[in-house]
């Protein structure tokens, strides 16, 4: 979706302000939110692409005004309500009142903790040969799906070169909608700064994205 989360190339957000000796969490609730998201994901309530989509789908003003973990909290609530695990009334009351819905992997317990400390595996066997190889000139398609996609706006319609092939991976665009893993070839595609930002751009800058095959066409 063409949301405010797709920030590459936007102006006006000001300077980057690193915080000296930044703590891992700024409040205790941030840690609880992180843990709840990890636990409910591991229990099978949602996949990582779906959880990203719910954060992106927050109203733009809310997205921009909320801290990182606040966005995680709001996205988690919306997602669990939409999927029928909890009701909005329960969150408001702070107590359960509706029946539970079975989780794919059962409730998350202390023995499951080690599992969330390891990243999921996203590589999949190839359903078809790769269309592109390193060195191919490709164009990022001019597409604007209203649902989740990992093709950022700032490269759409632009010419780049395939640099690496990462094999086949779960396709976020379908996984986010729970329409299946639909594995696709994944490539690092490199763009010249001038191709993306115009003739005045810094000639020494190159930018790459990792692009799934359906995002690309041979140029």
């Amino acid at each position: 979706m063409n949301g405010v989360h797709d920030m590459g190339g936007m102006d006006g957000f000001g300077k980057v302000e690193p915080e000296l000796n930044e703590p891992m969490f700024h409040t205790e609730w941030e840690a609880r939110v992180l843990a709840m998201v990890r636990a409910m994901g591991a229990a099978g309530a949602f996949n990582i692409d779906t959880s990203r989509f719910y954060r992106e789908a927050l109203p733009p003003d809310v997205y921009l005004a909320s801290s990182y973990y606040k966005k995680w909290l709001l996205g988690l609530e919306d997602m669990l309500v939409a999927k029928g695990y909890i009701t909005a009334d329960e969150v408001k009351a702070g107590h359960a009142s509706a029946p539970s819905k079975p989780l794919k992997h059962g409730g998350f317990q202390i023995d499951d903790v080690e599992r969330v400390m390891v990243r999921g595996k996203f590589g999949r066997p190839a359903p078809a040969p790769a269309k592109f190889k390193a060195g191919d000139r490709v164009r990022a398609k001019n597409i604007h799906p209203a649902t989740h996609t990992r093709l950022p706006r700032y490269v759409r319609g632009h010419l780049g070169v395939i640099e690496r092939d990462h094999g086949c991976h779960v396709f976020p665009d379908t996984a986010a909608n729970e329409a299946g893993e639909n594995p696709q070839w994944l490539y690092t595609v490199v763009f010249d700064g001038k191709e993306l930002w115009g003739a005045d751009a810094d000639p020494t800058v190159k930018i790459s994205i990792d692009a799934f095959e359906p995002y690309l066409e041979l140029a």
Binding site: T188, I207, I209, D210
Partner: peptide, 12 residues
């Protein structure tokens, strides 16, 4: 010196 920016758009 060339600057290369890597946008982490997938699970790499």
């Amino acid at each position: 010196v060339e600057i290369r920016v890597w946008d982490s758009t997938a699970e790499t």
